[in-house]
């Protein structure tokens, strides 16, 4: 288990915003929904489209390409386009105010 500092101050991310980061070679999307931070693989499990800029509503992130919605808390998709969940990562706040992720 590795904790990785993202270098992104939590205060820089507003609600419903998505911010892509590359950590250990992985493309990860940090999202803020209802005041909470979430991190998921930045790749839709339907057709591998990037999820950056996808619309967030409640706790759901919609893929900009065909609209698959993923529950940011669990990564589970809604609808019929894919049944494969998104990988999710635990997000915490470092002492310096940056977000940090727990990578495998």
């Amino acid at each position: 288990m590795a904790i990785t500092d993202t270098l992104i101050p939590a205060v820089d991310i507003s609600d419903k915003q998505t911010v892509p980061v590359t950590l250990n070679g992985k493309n990860i999307l940090i999202c803020k929904a209802n005041g909470e931070f979430y991190a998921v693989d930045n790749q839709c499990t339907h057709q591998r489209a990037e999820l950056t800029g996808g619309r967030i509503r409640n706790c759901y992130l919609a893929c900009p390409l065909h609209g698959v919605r993923f529950d940011l808390r669990t990564g589970q998709p809604l609808g019929e386009l894919t049944r494969v969940p998104l990988k999710t990562y635990d997000v915490s706040l470092a002492d310096n105010g940056n977000l940090q992720l727990e990578l495998d």
Partner: peptide
């Protein structure tokens, strides 16, 4: 064209 509720900039057939 759309499998479920959501948001779209355009409707792209999957």
């Amino acid at each position: 064209l759309r499998d479920c509720d959501g948001h779209a900039e355009e409707f792209v057939c999957p």
